[in-house]
Structures are given as structure tokens and as C-alpha cells.
Design a protein around this nucleic acid. Structure first.
Lengths: 207, 207
DNA sequence: TCAAGCATACCGTCCGGTCGGTCTGGTGTC
DNA sequence: GACACCAGACCGACCGGACGGTATGCTTGA
């Protein structure tokens, strides 16, 4: 799965992202990529045997980037219940230092690629499966970590698609809400090992 | 913005979705759509002057569908703080009755369309702006409703892209976590009108 | 009879992929 | 050191098919 990408191949993949970012994946042509990378089409095809392979490599590279990203965040985070959730909060929602323009470009390129060729979900699925595994054994009522992950995905979606402009404030607000949720969950877990407090039937929550 | 779509145009849009769902938007051709709708290409072009317009109409139809969907949910929800958040929870996360295969198809088609032509974000943006307006004046610490919306978006993303298979259990777990968060927020708001309790610096949350 | 609805044939363009070729640097041989 | 040889990197002209769009004509109902 993790293929060796040479320096030059990386350059070509960068060029691909650039073209997609600028012209949309509908206008992603081998000629355009080659031009962007200042190479001939023949040269490009020498490194990637087909357009499909090129795009696939792009997706894989990005997926692996994500994996190592959250893996490192996890390693950095102190042990204890909710470790993965805390890692996600700290890494993804702190000061937006991880919401770089570069990430946006690659993410949006991957999105486009997925739309083009649904089979490319595969590498993504692998990464997500890995992530959800960590989340599952997070040591908290499992919905909590899942909610955190989902919320981050949601913010990320808005951002990548450009549906809603990225407001720093909004990220901070959401982060606080999620942190509170996490704190409460941790607290409850500590105070009562019993089944979580009796709750209204799931139809409900009327205030 | 809200264009009148005739019965027949709807059929053609359905056909378009079907083709996208089956073959990906890369293989969305006028011929394919026409064939799917059992009509000639000329007939198709008689109703939609170009492929772009066809796809645009598809996006608009879906966007308006979403809008009316959450608007109705909002109307159905009792007044009070967190109304929009509750509406979203009740509608989107209750028994998955709104996670229909039909929605998945149309959503994924829209995704593909957006990837193909970024300008089509426009209708989506309008709908989201409307939604976020309601969320902003939800009467709770604003991050809470935003977090709910984001989490739902995240679940929705996983589902539409097929990154993670839709598990009913997972939806329920996340729903509970979010409900708890909402309940706490509502409670805090009731007990203290003061600024929310002193919190650790946002760097933190160490358990 | 006229217009709207639709079908058929066709055109021009674009683009992925092929293929023959050139250039460069490395390696053995004398 | 000179030479032959070779492999891999890279080029770019070209081909063939696909696809969006047009032009034109048929059919049906008012």
C-alpha cells in the first residue's frame, strides 16, 4: 500500500494537485500536468503508466499523510481515557495550524478524485478503519470520541468544499463545546462505573 | 434560484443521478443519461440546453431538497434554546429514517458535481448560510449547536463517501453523546447566566 | 398549419495512450 | 584514456475513440 514515491514522482503529484486546484479535475489532463511539471507528456507517462495510476498515487499519498498525521498526534498525547479524542482535538482544532492551504489543496484534489473514480475510496477506508479502531477503544462512552471525530470531519468538510469560510472563532467555539463534552464524559466515568444515568427514550430530549 | 422543474425534467435528473451513481461522474455523458431515461440525446438537450445546465439543475434540486428538509424539521421542533440543534438531532439522527438510499445517491451525485465544477458550490452555500444563521441564534453557547451540526455533517460524509459503512449503533451512540452535550449546555445556561465556568486555557484539557 | 417535442445523423474537438526516436550517464573492454 | 555498448529517462508527433453540441427532419396534437 505504501508505495515508494521518488522525489520526481512527488513533484509530478504536486503538479497534479496544482492543476486540479486551479482548473478542477474535469480539466485534469496529462498535458496539463506535464506542462505544470515542465515535462513532456511522454516523460510523465514514463513515471506513471496511466492517468488512473497517477490519480491513484495521489490519493494514496494523501491518505498516508493523514494516517501519519493522526498517528503522530496520538503518540504525542498523554495516555488515559479519551486519548484519541484528545489527540484529535489538540491536533486538528488547535490554532488551525494544521489547516494549511496545502492540506486544503490535497484534500480537495482527493475529493475530486473520489468523485471521479469511486474505487479510490479503498485507501481512505483503510486509514479510517485504523482511526476508528483507536476511537473504539478510547476508554470512554464510545459515542463521545466518535462524536468528536465526526464533528472534526464535518468542520473539515465545510472547509475543504468551501461551503463555509473558515472562521477561527467557529473552530474555537466548537472545540470548547467538544472539550466540555469530553470532560463531562471523563468525569461521569470516574464518578460512576455504573451504566450511564437513566436517560429518556431516544425519541426525545424535549427541553 | 428555485427553478420550476417539470415532471419530465425531474425524470431526467433522476436518470442523471442514476448514471452518476452507477458509473461515476467521469462517465456521465449525455448519451448515458438519455439512454437511462429512454430518450434520445436530442430530446435530452431539448430540456436542458447543455450538460452544464443539467448538472447545475441537479445540484439546485438537491440543495433545495435539503433546505426544505431541515426547515420542516425546525418547524416541527418545539421552541426554546437549542431548537435548531434539537431539530437536527431528531431529524437526522433518529432511526436513520432520513438516511435513505435515495438521499445517498443524490448526495453523492452532488459531491461529484461539485468536484467537477467548483462553481456549483453556490447553491450549497446559500443553503448552508441559511442553516448557520439559525444555528447562530440558537440560544445556547454557540459552539454547542455548531458542534452538533458539524458532527452530523461528519457522519453524513462518512456515509455518503462510503468510507465507513453506516452502523445504526454508531449513529445512536453519537446521538446520545450529542444529546448529553446539549442537555448540559441547556442546564448550565439555566443555572448560571454568567460567563461559562472558568475553563482551563485552550491548550489543555489534560485528564 | 404551426409549434412543441423528440429522433437521427453528423461534425469538430479534445484527450488518453502509443511509439519511434534522442539524449545522457554508466560500465565494461582493450 | 578511448571506445563501444546499453539502459533508462525523456520527448513529441500521431492516432483513434469518445463526447458535447448542432442541424435537420419527423410526428403529434391543438
Amino acid at each position: 500500500m505504501k508505495q515508494t514515491t521518488s522525489k520526481l514522482q512527488d513533484t509530478l503529484l504536486d503538479a497534479t494537485e496544482t492543476v486540479v486546484a486551479r482548473q478542477g479535475i474535469a480539466n485534469l489532463t496529462l498535458d496539463a500536468v506535464a506542462a505544470e511539471a515542465r515535462m513532456s507528456k511522454g516523460g510523465l507517462l514514463h513515471h506513471f503508466p496511466s492517468k488512473d495510476r497517477l490519480v491513484e498515487a495521489l490519493v494514496i499519498r494523501t491518505a498516508e499523510g493523514w494516517r501519519s498525521c493522526y498517528t503522530e498526534a496520538y503518540e504525542r498525547t498523554p495516555e488515559g481515557p479519551g486519548r484519541m479524542a484528545r489527540a484529535l482535538l489538540d491536533h486538528c482544532l488547535s490554532d488551525a495550524k494544521c489547516w494549511t492551504e496545502e492540506l486544503r489543496r490535497s484534500s480537495s484534489a482527493v475529493f475530486a478524485a473520489l468523485a471521479q473514480n469511486p474505487a479510490l475510496i479503498q485507501p481512505m477506508r483503510a486509514v479510517y478503519a485504523d482511526l476508528h479502531l483507536r476511537i473504539a477503544k478510547d476508554g470512554l462512552p464510545s459515542g463521545v470520541a466518535e462524536a468528536v471525530a465526526a464533528a472534526i470531519d464535518g468542520l473539515w468538510l465545510d472547509w475543504v468544499l468551501g461551503i463555509v469560510p473558515l472562521e477561527q472563532d467557529r473552530v474555537v467555539r466548537v472545540r470548547r463545546a467538544l472539550e466540555d463534552m469530553l470532560a463531562h464524559a471523563t468525569q461521569n466515568r470516574r464518578s460512576s462505573k455504573a451504566k450511564s444515568a437513566p436517560r429518556k427514550r431516544s425519541g426525545g430530549l424535549r427541553v
